[in-house]
Design a protein around this nucleic acid. Structure first.
Length: 470
RNA sequence: CGGGGCGUGGCGCAGUCUGGUAGCGCAUCUGCUUUGGGAGCAGAGGGUCGUUGGUUCGAAUCCAGCCGCCCCGACCA
């Protein structure tokens, strides 16, 4: 059976290049659900929160809990997909664990009582103690130990993208610090610390590539390893004025390019070393004396940052407590060495906006933009203008540019303002005035530059991404 | 959880001090005129003033409890 048979028939304008999964169909605004707000909501304090509300991306349903409206949902899907692709590329294998877990599982690791009020505890109809998972180390360890017994069963690198809940004392900043949040979590299982280090390095590199694809400059910073010790814990921080904590680093790290296409089965140590040789630390780990000694004054960067990823080797903490052991070649049985590697997917939506917006609205990096091109019909109902817009819509859809066509009756000013607000990378503006000479305008959201071109030329150049510049 | 603040049409707010039966802007609907950067005029609809109780002839307004939300702090991806 081919999967294609299971797929509903696509509308004819969906194009012949349709791939297996369509995460993001094109859209006509008249059919969409985009409740934009002209006025700024009073509760929102930071730019990303304000803009997400104004752009109709999400709606608060409770403190720190949000409904993802269509536009926000598309961005969330795009980010998830990029994260997924980079995990797959690094050799991690996707699965999906439930949100609700049993308290007994957490008693095994002694974390049920240790976790405190951040854990949302639930009782089911049989009075069984359950919880909404704040993380999944226990569960993945339980899964691993159920099936894996031999040194031949490792290494394993498993991940899932799932919602979590932490009952934060004070949720704030919209999705940046919600109680419910979407996380990608990878867990590694290895025979020994050397194996775990190899897994760690894979994730280290995969994270650099992931954040680069998301249009972010993320800097790995040495993080506290707690009782485990060692050097195997890094936070990945993006720089933004509204960052939650202060960070200090060598400024060369910010512009260092991502490793890109590497052999994940090869030795990645040198690539990691390149990135960890220069000074980089969050407030908690900062040593002013070392910073001044190691970094020339002109290169000292102190800024505010947002943590978007965290990788961590924790040895046998859970495998010990939960008896996740494998038999080694010498016949002995030992707990596996584990690590966990998180990316805050929903937080990234806010993080990207913090890093990329202006006074008019969001400026999406192309890779995560909810739509690739916004087509603005300046006079809906005018036969020629409608026809030109339909043509552009069909062509850009076929080219995989995922256009959003504003075919509403709103006035031009309002349409421009909405397009700027929702931050699509390119706007194709089509109206009767330009059309008289066969022309349309392309506006690049990021730079504000406008190009007046022949309509066909504009469509062709947008279709091939000719206006892109990083 | 400690400190502070706010709950009044969908959104943003005034009215509360000094009690007398609810108002403004935006949005929505209708009509006309407009139409290349958030239009104009005319008209219309929409609110048990978070909730419960108390004081009073009378409560959005005064008092008490509760609920929700926001900000600062401690906490955190």
């Amino acid at each position: 059976m081919t999967l294609a048979l299971l797929r509903p028939a696509l509308p004819s304008n969906a194009g012949a290049t349709q791939q297996f999964t369509t995460v993001s169909p094109p859209m006509r605004l008249s059919r969409y659900f985009l409740p934009v707000l002209k006025e700024t909501p009073a509760d929102a304090q930071i730019a990303s929160h304000r803009l997400m509300l104004r752009a109709g991306m999400m709606r608060q349903e409770s403190a720190g809990i949000y409904a993802w409206l269509p536009l926000g949902h598309r961005v969330l899907q795009k980010i998830s997909q990029i994260v997924r692709e980079e995990q797959d590329r690094a050799g991690a294998v996707e699965l999906l664990m439930p949100t609700i877990q049993s308290a007994d599982l957490w008693r095994e690791s002694n974390r049920y009582d240790a976790y405190g009020k951040e854990m949302l505890r639930i009782t089911d109809r049989h009075d069984r103690e359950m919880l909404y998972g704040p993380t999944n180390e226990e569960m993945i360890t339980e899964i691993f130990r159920a099936y894996c017994r031999s040194y031949k069963d490792v290494p394993k690198l498993l991940y899932h993208i799932q919602w979590k809940f932490r009952d934060e004392i004070r949720p704030r900043f919209g999705v940046m610090r919600g109680r419910e949040f979407l996380m990608k979590d990878t867990y590694s299982f290895d025979l020994d610390e050397a194996g775990a280090r190899a897994a760690y390095n894979k994730m280290f590199i995969a994270y650099l590539n992931t954040f680069a694809r998301l249009g972010l400059k993320a800097v790995p910073m040495r993080a506290d390893t707690g009782p485990i010790g060692g050097d195997l814990s890094h936070e990945f921080i993006i720089l933004a004025e509204t960052g939650e904590s202060e960070v200090f680093c060598h400024s060369d790290l910010v512009e260092m390019p991502a490793p890109g296409d590497v052999d994940f089965d090869g030795d990645l140590q040198h690539l990691v070393d390149q990135r960890t040789a220069l000074y980089a630390a969050t407030e908690e780990m900062h040593e002013a004396a070392r910073f001044e000694a190691e970094v020339p004054e002109a290169k000292r960067l102190s800024a505010r940052g947002i943590e978007v990823g965290h990788i961590f080797y924790f040895g046998t903490k859970y495998s010990d407590a939960m008896k996740a052991e494998v038999t080694h070649p010498d016949g002995s049985s030992k707990p596996v060495h584990m690590g966990s590697y998180g990316i805050g997917v929903s937080r990234l939506v806010g993080g990207i906006i913090e890093a990329s917006h202006d006074e008019n609205g969001i400026i999406w990096p192309e890779s995560v933009a909810p739509f690739g091109v916004g087509i603005v019909n300046l006079k809906a109902g005018d036969a020629d203008t409608d026809a030109a817009c339909d043509k552009a819509y069909a062509a850009l859809t076929a080219a995989g540019r995922e256009p959003l066509l504003d075919d509403t009756n709103e006035r031009p000013g309002g349409k421009f303002a909405t397009m700027d607000l929702i931050g699509l990378p390119y706007q194709l503006v089509i109206g009767p005035r330009g059309l008289k000479e066969g022309k349309a305008e392309v506006k690049v959201r990021k730079t504000g530059e406008r190009h007046e071109l022949a309509l066909d030329d504009a469509i062709a150049r947008l279709a091939e991404g000719a206006f892109s510049h990083g």
